[in-house]
Simulated assay, not measured.
Amino acid sequence: MNETVNILVVDDEKRILEVVEAYLKKENFKVYTAIDGEKALKIFKEENVHLIVLDLMIPKISGEEVCRRIRTVSDIPIIMLTAKTEENDKIEGLTIGADDYLTKPFSVRELVVRVRALLRRSYRNCNPLADYLVFNESDLEIDVKRMKVKKKAVEIEITPYEFKVLLALLTSPGQVFTRKQLVEKAFGIEYEGFDRTIDSYIKNLRHKIEDNPKSPQYISTVYGIGYKFVDQKI
């Protein structure tokens, strides 16, 4: 990522916030902090946050609920922190949308390593040409930072995974990507799903952004190879 990386750290223990913030700032990250779920959601809505370190047991709105709400609108990387040590607690955290998990007490140096690894995996080679893209005289508009898509000026519902696939195609309009390349660009090399899963995401995207999904003008199939985003006049 070429821009400043913004990280939100959420924990109700002031000492943990101070130490984690100091370590992350030393690594040249910009850090926002919150001591409760309410403030965390406020910062998430107002700032361009790239990754969240989220404690589960926080006041006002629990970490689990914060994660659930964020996952309805964003696929931002989330590392969960918790004092809970049971396997079921870990599974629950990952099930509701966490990407990684650390049990308290934890090594701050290990946290920093995990933050960097998760950022690399989440944003690997997936930078589109601009933050706001307009195609075919405003027929299709894509707000990259807000993860919003409009078709004929009407905002459409799009899942985080569908949006990642769309962004992967938009990194190089006109370039043909194999299914494997799209998986790696959209989800990282550690993704455990099948390459053919991409076909489902492409099908869903076409139904949402194309006038005629059976004769697409944006996402074109290159038979025997994969898919490409047709570079329309902007």
Rank of each mutant, 00 (worst) to 15 (best):
V113A: 14
N125W: 08
G63R: 00
L102Q: 07
K25M: 15
E3M: 10
E38G: 11
Y218R: 00
N2P: 13
F44P: 00
S172L: 08
V113D: 09
D139Q: 10
D211V: 10
G193C: 10
R179T: 13
F229N: 04
N6K: 12
T197K: 06
M80K: 07
R146M: 15
V176I: 14
Q181C: 12
N212W: 09
V20C: 00
P59S: 08
V165A: 04
E27M: 05
D89E: 12
A186I: 04
A130T: 07
I158H: 03
D99E: 09
L24W: 04
I96L: 03
R109M: 13
F106W: 02
L129W: 11
K151H: 06
K104E: 03
D12E: 06
I43P: 01
N127I: 15
I209Q: 02
I202D: 01
S74F: 07
V108A: 00
D75G: 12
L167I: 10
V5Q: 03
E157P: 07
L140F: 05
G224F: 03
T197A: 14
P77L: 03
D12C: 12
E46R: 12
N88H: 09
I234Y: 14
N127S: 10
V73L: 08
E87Y: 11
Y161V: 06
C126R: 14
K145W: 10
T159Y: 08
V9K: 01
T82M: 03
E46M: 12
T159D: 09
D11K: 06
K45D: 12
K152W: 12
K39E: 07
E27Q: 05
K180E: 08
Y132M: 14
L24A: 02
A153M: 07
K60W: 05
N212M: 14
L111G: 00
K14S: 11
Y123W: 11
A117T: 14
K152E: 05
S107R: 08
K30Q: 15
E87Q: 15
G37S: 03
K145Q: 12
R114L: 07
V134K: 13
E38C: 12
V31S: 00
Y191G: 01
N125A: 08
D12V: 13
A22Y: 07
V53H: 02
I70E: 02
K214A: 14
L8P: 01
I234T: 12
K25S: 12
Y227T: 09
R206L: 06
V183Q: 01
K104M: 04
L8D: 01
K151F: 10
E38F: 15
L56E: 00
L56F: 00
T178C: 05
T178S: 07
C67E: 02
N6G: 08
P173R: 08
D100F: 10
Y201K: 01
V53R: 08
D211S: 10
F135R: 02
G188C: 06
E65M: 06
S62L: 14
I219C: 08
L102P: 07
V222P: 04
R15M: 11
G93Q: 02
L170P: 00
V9C: 06
Y223M: 12
E137F: 15
D99M: 11
M80D: 00
E162V: 14
V9P: 02
